[in-house]
Design a protein around this nucleic acid. Structure first.
Length: 253
DNA sequence: GGCCAGGCCCCAG
DNA sequence: CTGGGGCATGGC
């Protein structure tokens, strides 16, 4: 792990998590009820001695090899990888990912982050002055649809209510394969193909996932009109993250 | 001040 | 099974 590289800025703000803030070179979030705050230059020392964070930041996966394989396969992707290396896929709490991406539909990343914070401040545990954890299912089980609407959740409010009632389903997904787990998730109201893919990728590290949102559909049409996710196998998810992030921030190279 | 956003549900053909 | 309208809200 000593020379494992990570692009913290891109990893934490490429749309896979909505939990982090950055001021100057200081990163801050609440992970597993724990207030995590560090300066960029202290990151590698921190993850070396902290197993929970090392796992969260996915410091042991084969990013070097994956970046090499993907770069060799396609010049556009190679340019994106060079531009943003090394984005990691975080190991997040499936519950937070499920709710975050429920909120994501017909929405923008800025406002998803704001809604994530609203839920935390309204129902989560305060772990430090003014710093709130994302609420656990038990903290939301008696919240009504009207209360979620009053908090600005809009048409997603009923999805939140029914999802909270089904949250225990997440426990059973660890042992399922990708296809079976996705079937289970799509059974939840408000969870479709795309959101289920995101949950399985960001919450369960299924690196064969390939979420196709509006940005990725543009990318596929523009650069890969005759291809699909199999072109990027077995690293489809990582390719997707670079292509998505690059398209959002950089536009055409 | 319209337009649009990491979609999904629902209903018509 | 495929296509397209509707949906709450706020950032731009």
């Amino acid at each position: 792990m000593n020379d494992t590289l990570i692009n913290l800025e891109a990893t934490l703000f490429c749309g896979q998590t909505f939990a982090w803030t950055k001021e100057g070179n200081r990163y801050e979030a609440v992970l597993g009820g724990r207030h995590v705050i560090f300066e960029e230059q202290d990151f590698y020392a921190l993850v070396t001695e902290d197993a929970m964070l090392s796992h969260y930041f996915d410091m042991e996966w084969e990013y070097d090899e994956a970046e090499r394989v993907l770069s060799a396969r396609d010049p556009h992707l190679a340019a994106r990888i060079k531009q943003y290396r090394s984005i990691h896929i975080l190991n997040q709490d499936p519950w937070e990912v499920l709710v975050s991406f429920l909120l994501s539909q017909n929405n923008n990343i800025k406002r998803i982050r704001s809604m994530y914070r609203s839920l935390s401040e309204a129902y989560g545990t305060e772990v430090a002055p003014g710093v709130f954890a994302f609420p656990r299912p038990s903290q939301l089980e008696s919240v009504t649809e009207a209360e979620f609407r009053a908090l600005g959740m809009g048409f997603r409010a009923p999805y939140l209510v029914s999802t909270i009632a089904q949250s225990e389903l997440l426990e059973s997904l660890n042992t399922l394969d990708y296809v079976s787990a996705k079937e289970q998730l799509i059974g939840i109201r408000g969870v479709g193909e795309k959101v289920a893919s995101c949950i399985l990728l960001f919450g369960y590290h299924h690196m064969e996932a390939f979420p196709l949102d509006t940005w990725m559909q543009k990318v596929m049409k523009k650069y890969y009109p005759t291809k699909d996710k199999t072109f990027f196998a077995p690293y489809a998810a990582l390719a997707q993250q670079y292509l998505f992030h690059g398209e959002r921030l950089g536009g055409r190279l």
